[in-house]
């Protein structure tokens, strides 16, 4: 599989905190990569750099567009915005921050379509309805405001609103973080089936080893801004090399 996204020697400081310390990684097409690690290890910061929401102080992010690779820095802010509007997606931990609560569910799903040029009302609406079904929300909620939705429904709505543009690459930051366990399982199932069906490449941040095992092809373990271990998910989890990873895996109770 060919490379889609590549980080080269990313470093970034917030004041005196070295949030990322010389991080490099590659993501292939259709691949699911999980980033795990303790709180404050730099997972979200790394995800924000990869997705162009933050610019690293040093190092480069390269996106392989067709055959050519160009760094996000060289592409410029406007080109990156264009990518973010359609070909890339971002699923935040808190759907309330990502969705517009004063806009109907259909409007929220249609937003990315409209932002990338869709101009046919009926088509947009039909597409929104299809996606509402795909995330298992009743179609007659299409014109309802998200504030009337439950937490799990909101997260599913956010997933629909992200995937509606048929992106090739989706970034997710703890997509099940704010939900209770029973709801988590359902959302994870949904993500797994959609991701496989659509052949998405995904970078998912989680501190839950179980989530990583369920979804990811490959795994990156972070600690204090560095990648301490990476490899195929099963390999890393079954035979952790780095002492920190061993600790991480050991601290998870067997299911």
């Amino acid at each position: 599989m060919s490379v889609l996204l590549e980080a080269r020697h990313i470093s970034h400081r917030f004041g005196r905190t070295l949030a990322l310390d010389d991080v490099s990684l590659t993501l292939r097409r259709h691949e699911i990569l999980a980033i795990v690690g303790e709180s404050g290890s730099g997972k979200t910061t790394l995800l924000n750099m990869l997705s162009g929401r933050l610019t690293p102080q040093s190092g480069d992010i390269l996106y392989y567009d067709g055959h050519a690779a160009t760094s996000l820095r060289v592409r410029g802010e406007r080109a990156v915005r264009t990518l973010q509007r359609a070909r890339w997606g971002y699923v935040a931990q808190d759907p309330r921050a990502a969705l517009r609560l004063d806009i109907s569910a259909g409007g929220n799903i249609g937003a990315r379509l409209m932002a990338s040029g869709a101009r046919n009302y009926d088509d947009i609406r039909a597409m929104a309805a299809r996606w509402l079904e795909a995330v298992e929300i009743d179609v007659d909620r299409l014109d309802d405001w998200p504030r009337t939705f439950s937490g799990g429904m909101l997260q599913r709505l956010q997933i629909a609103a992200t995937l509606v543009t048929d992106p090739e690459l989706v970034f997710m930051d703890e997509p099940t973080g704010g939900l209770d366990v029973s709801v988590q399982a359902r959302i994870l199932d949904l993500i797994r089936s959609l991701v496989r069906r659509l052949g998405l490449a995904v970078v998912i941040v989680t501190h839950d080893i179980g989530v990583a095992r369920l979804l990811a092809d490959r795994l990156i373990v972070m600690r204090r801004g560095c990648i301490v271990e990476h490899g195929l998910t099963d390999q890393v989890l079954d035979d952790p090399q780095h002492p920190y990873t061993q600790l991480l895996v050991a601290s998870v109770l067997p299911v």
């Binding site: 406007r78 915005r81 259909g106 937003a111 409209m114 009302y121």
Partner: peptide, 19 residues
Amino acid sequence: HAMADYGPMHVKLYEDITR
């Protein structure tokens, strides 16, 4: 404006028509 991020304006029209 700089990014030509005008999607939200269309979303408003979508909402009007829907409502």
